[in-house]
Every structure is written in structure tokens, then in C-alpha cells.
Simulated assay, not measured.
Amino acid sequence: MSRLRMIFEKRDFACFVRHVELPQLFGRIARRAGLKVALTQGMSPHPHIVMGPALPVGVISLCEAAEIWFDENVPPEEALEKMNAQAPTGFRFLRAARIAPDAMSLNKCFDAASYWLCPRDMDKLAAVKSVLSEEFGAETLLALRECGDGLELVMHDPSQTGPGALVKALIAREAISGWPEVCIARLRLGRWRADKGEIAPLL
């Protein structure tokens, strides 16, 4: 058995696939690629696939994480090539690495994520930036800066303070009226390095 950690992206219509559907989808991709995914133990075995922090439907991502257990010893490069050949449009597996079976669980390996956020009305950019700075303390909003076409921000604990929390705060402060008024994408996922002011990647 081998445990592979994989970094993937979801763009275009792939962002409309619900997070809870991803393990089943990845299991199908692996089967079509000729790779046998191990099953969990218990009363109702299912493919042994663990996903990283969830994103709301409609949010694209350049950096998502998953761990897949295979019955056989699968080289990471082979898994990448075969699964990319079978992946639906919008999904692309970027990197893979073998992880020790007893290593730390995936969801304990990250504590931060970065996002690109842009209001569709750029006249609201300053107000959006101000609200985010005021609503989230320094322990949660680790970094915030303007980039060429919006804001780039780093949030602590992406399982709890993801895009949903950002949009909720902006709506509450009337900076926007709803999701259609803002574009958000996840850029990176990993561990925050305060000494360098950046996220150390998972792979």
C-alpha cells in the first residue's frame, strides 16, 4: 500500500463540483487510470481518500490538497501522469509525493491559505480592504496587500476562515450585497512562516 499526497487545481466549471463529491470523483479517475485505490475499514468501506479544507461552490483554486491510499506501490510521477490523462476538464494534478503511512494527517499539515479577492466594481476596492482589515484581527488575517487587479490576503486556519467568512463579513458591513459582486480564488495552501511573511507549501 502507498499513501500519496497530491496537489491539484480546479478551474473553470470544475469549481462547481462540490467538495463532498471530490473523493468519489477522484476514485473514478483512479479506476479509469488503472490505479487501485485502497478501501477504508469498517461497516461501509469507501475509497481511502482525504481532502484538504473545503471551498464554497464556485470558488476556483490553484492549490488544493488530497491524500490517496493505493493498494499497490504507485510512483508519484506515474500517478500524476495517469490521473491527469483521465481527469475532467478543469482539474489538473500538479505535484505528488509519497507520504509515510504513519505520518501526520493531511489536515494537520497546514494552518494558512492565501486568496485573491476582487470586487467586480473596482471602485469598492478600498472599502473592501478596509472592512477586511477591521473585521479580522492580526491572528486571523496574517497578511493583506493590494495587487494589480485586487487584493491578496493570507488567512489563518482555512478550515474555519475561508472565502465564506470573508464574504459574510463584507455583506454584514455592506461593502457588497452578495457573492455575485466579488471574485475569489485560492492561491496557496500550507504553513505560515511569520519570519519570511509567506506560506511554506505542502509539497
Results as ranks from 00 to 15, higher is better:
Ser2His: 10
Ser2Leu: 03
Arg3Gln: 04
Arg3Cys: 11
Ile7Lys: 11
Phe8Ala: 02
Lys10Leu: 03
Asp12His: 10
Phe16His: 14
Arg18Leu: 13
His19Trp: 12
Val20Trp: 10
Leu25Tyr: 08
Gly27Asn: 05
Gly27Thr: 07
Arg28Gln: 11
Arg28Met: 08
Ala30Arg: 06
Lys36Phe: 01
Ser44Phe: 13
Ser44Asp: 09
His46Met: 12
Val50Asp: 03
Pro56Trp: 08
Ile60Asn: 04
Leu62Gln: 13
Leu62Cys: 11
Glu64Arg: 01
Glu67Trp: 05
Ile68Arg: 03
Phe70Glu: 03
Asn73Asp: 15
Asn73Gly: 12
Asn73Glu: 13
Pro75Glu: 05
Pro76Asn: 05
Ala79Lys: 05
Glu81Ala: 15
Gln86Asp: 06
Gly90Cys: 10
Arg92Met: 08
Arg95Ile: 06
Ala96Phe: 04
Ala100Val: 00
Met104Thr: 09
Asn107Ile: 09
Asn107Val: 09
Ala112Val: 00
Ala113Ile: 00
Tyr115Phe: 13
Cys118Trp: 01
Asp121Met: 04
Met122Pro: 04
Lys124Pro: 00
Val128Asp: 08
Leu132Glu: 07
Leu132Phe: 04
Ser133Asn: 15
Ser133His: 14
Glu134Cys: 11
Ala143Gln: 12
Leu144Thr: 11
Glu146Met: 10
Asp149Lys: 10
Glu152Cys: 05
Val154Phe: 07
Met155Ser: 00
His156Arg: 15
His156Asn: 14
Pro158Ala: 09
Thr161Cys: 09
Pro163Tyr: 12
Gly164Cys: 09
Leu166Lys: 07
Leu166Val: 15
Lys168Met: 11
Ala169Asp: 02
Glu174Lys: 15
Glu174Cys: 10
Ala175Trp: 00
Ala175Ile: 05
Ile176Val: 13
Pro180His: 02
Val182Met: 11
Cys183Asn: 15
Ala185Lys: 14
Ala185Ser: 14
Leu189Ala: 00
Arg191Trp: 03
Trp192Arg: 13
Ile199Met: 13
Ile199His: 10
Pro201Met: 08
Pro201Glu: 11
Pro201Trp: 06
Leu203Arg: 04
Leu203Pro: 14
